[in-house]
């Protein structure tokens, strides 16, 4: 496709556009580059460069608090991504492929956790768990505590919505005739879902899962509210350190977290590429 900008090449406006773009990209990446460079600084003092070293990375892996928080993060991410992906995909299917009572309310309800401010959601869940635990204790003498369980339950609550949105977008692009064609060719509802719908929305489901994973691994605000003593996640632990100041150890942890994000981006692009299907080899009519 040819692109017409309505601007002659190398006009002043065009040059201005290009300059702006490269400035924005510099703005995007300069802090990251600085952070990465400083994470290899041997000096105790962040601001003073002495020599390149892996010292702080070794420290990270020796730091028990960081490792414990990382372990918690991974557990929470695994649980919340799995549950949210299943529930969110089911919700998307129900919304896109069925008509049922209360559908509009359901639709709205699913958008709420996305729209609602994180802080509000954090407050809601904190009060809910506190009140609920108090009530459980009084009712059946069981008093659970804040910890990995409450964090996971909270992460699922916001992740369902994000998975639903992503899977719905994919389902919306899927020609409903394909499912009819499967039924026409003797497939039962379940066979049509397993054989046609699921494989075709899989990139969307994977995309939703990746988004859920990222959100779970990134969340600070909500986790901060529903974490218990000794059960904080890596971002919450790092957040606590960051508020106190800048240290070379945080630099190293941050770069590791960034690297993890990059891997996720790469994986997500891989999925998107795979979903686009094979490139047509020949469009020639030979019959």
């Amino acid at each position: 496709m040819s692109v017409v900008t309505g601007l002659r090449p190398k006009s002043p406006a065009e040059r201005l556009l290009a300059t702006n773009s490269w400035l924005v990209f510099a703005f995007f990446y300069a802090p990251i580059v600085v952070l990465v460079v400083f994470s290899f600084n041997a000096n105790e003092n962040v601001g003073i460069w002495t020599e390149p070293s892996l010292r702080w990375y070794r420290e990270v892996f020796r730091d028990e608090a960081v490792m414990g928080a990382l372990r918690n993060s991974l557990i929470v991410a695994a649980i919340s991504t799995t549950v949210a992906t299943i529930l969110g995909t089911m919700a998307a299917l129900a919304l896109e492929r069925f008509r049922f009572r209360g559908q509009r309310v359901y639709d709205g309800l699913l958008y709420l956790p996305i729209i609602i401010p994180e802080v509000t959601m954090a407050v809601m869940l904190l009060l809910f768990f506190a009140q609920g635990f108090q009530w459980l204790d009084g009712a059946i003498g069981w008093s659970p505590t804040f910890g990995i369980g409450t964090i996971s339950l909270s992460h699922i609550a916001f992740n369902i919505s994000f998975v639903t949105v992503v899977v719905r977008a994919r389902l919306g692009q899927l020609d409903p005739r394909l499912e009819e064609a499967a039924a026409d060719l003797y497939a039962t509802r379940w066979q049509a879902f397993r054989g046609i719908t699921l494989p075709l929305i899989l990139p969307g489901v994977a995309g939703g899962a990746l988004l859920a994973l990222t959100l779970s691994l990134d969340d600070v605000v909500i986790t901060n509210f529903v974490a218990g003593p000794g059960s904080t996640t890596l971002p919450v632990y790092v957040f606590g350190l960051v508020r106190r100041g800048v240290t070379p150890l945080i630099n190293a942890v941050s770069v590791i977290m960034l690297a993890a994000s990059m891997v996720l981006v790469a994986v997500s692009f891989g999925f998107q590429r795979g979903s686009r299907g094979r490139v047509p080899e020949s469009m020639a009519e030979d019959g």
Partner: peptide
Amino acid sequence: PNERPVNTVFQSYALFPH
């Protein structure tokens, strides 16, 4: 539809892309 002895050719063909 899966219990009917008829088959359909769709306007968009509806070939399974995968």
